[in-house]
């Protein structure tokens, strides 16, 4: 039962199984976030098989959130149960359960055996579970995840470009990679922000965008932009209140948890006070990169 360790935004998740017939490990971009070991993981997850006919255990539980997609969240006796289902299976069947304690420090993932290809390695925290776990950890006073592209320039300055789908995050990532020697993309779709000793850091995550760029690195946050495509390049500083609202609209809070929502709003408000946020109207070509770099110089 050798555990696997993932370290995302300085939070470590250990997952393991006692079942020799179950082959597990990180897959896809999550592999880039695998670490050899950790003596004190933030989360420990035990993985096991279950049969499709096994009871799910939601009879007494309260539905806390329905994503409208492949997962629902239930709460029972201070435990949280994620139920994952897909219409690929008979009756829109359940393919995975994930049960966590109230602090999301310990969990169990149960995989419905008939839903997985026999003999193949499985990533039990497969999206969206890995991201949901991270959002719940961050919402407990640790940080915020934003729909954003994070780029570190050759001088180590962190640029955050926030935007919803289609805003131009992957385009921006590609342009900076092409035009700026030494530029590194931490992710072209999801960035975690945390504050440490008064400094805001942006962290790469495995949840990449079209350009499939992600790295297990962090950088001090230098500039914050909200992306807006336009016919010419321009920058407008947003008021702290507007910035906080714009960032919240591009964040991924734990919607079922009022304390986490409060924390997210507070975190983004403070960040907007301390790190001016700018609306970047940009043309989708290299001139946008040059424009931003000149505005920094």
């Amino acid at each position: 039962m050798n555990p696997h360790f993932l370290r995302i935004a300085d939070l470590t998740v250990a997952f393991s199984t006692r079942d020799p017939s179950l082959h597990i490990g990180p897959q896809g971009a999550a592999k880039r976030f695998a670490v050899a070991e950790s003596t004190h993981p933030d989360v420990t997850v035990d993985v096991s098989w279950m049969e499709a006919t096994d009871p799910i255990g939601i009879e007494e539980a309260q539905l806390r959130f329905d994503s409208g997609g492949i997962w629902k969240l239930y709460e029972q006796q201070n435990e949280f149960l994620f139920v994952f289902s897909s219409p690929r299976f008979i009756g829109g069947g359940v393919y995975k359960l994930a049960l966590f304690d109230k602090d999301f420090c310990r969990g169990q993932v149960r995989l419905v055996k008939s839903c997985y290809p026999p003999g193949e390695s499985i990533y039990p925290l497969e999206y969206p579970l890995d991201e949901l776990l991270m959002l719940n950890l961050l919402g407990r006073g640790r940080g915020v995840e934003l729909h954003a592209c994070g780029i570190v320039d050759g001088a180590g300055q962190g640029f955050l470009f926030c935007g919803q789908s289609g805003a131009g995050k992957s385009t921006t990532a590609g342009l900076w990679q092409k035009d700026v020697p030494g530029a590194e993309v931490l992710s072209d779709d999801r960035i975690v922000i945390r504050k440490e000793s008064g400094t805001y850091f942006m962290y790469g995550t495995p949840w990449h965008g079209d350009a499939q760029l992600s790295q297990a690195k962090r950088a001090p946050l230098s500039r914050v932009f909200v992306l807006k495509q336009g016919r010419q390049n321009g920058i407008q500083t947003l008021s702290a209140a507007t910035a906080a609202a714009e960032l919240f609209a591009r964040s991924f809070p734990a919607f079922h948890d009022s304390s986490a929502l409060d924390f997210t709003v507070q975190f983004l408000s403070e960040m907007s006070d301390q790190k001016p946020c700018e609306l970047l109207t940009f043309v989708r070509d290299s001139s946008a990169v040059e424009f931003v770099r000149r505005s920094v110089a």
Binding site: Q27, G69, I70, E120, E126, P128, W207
Partner: peptide, 11 residues
């Protein structure tokens, strides 16, 4: 996060 994002995993 209601639907699939990654196409690079088995499951």
């Amino acid at each position: 996060l209601g639907n699939c994002k990654s196409s690079s995993t088995v499951g």
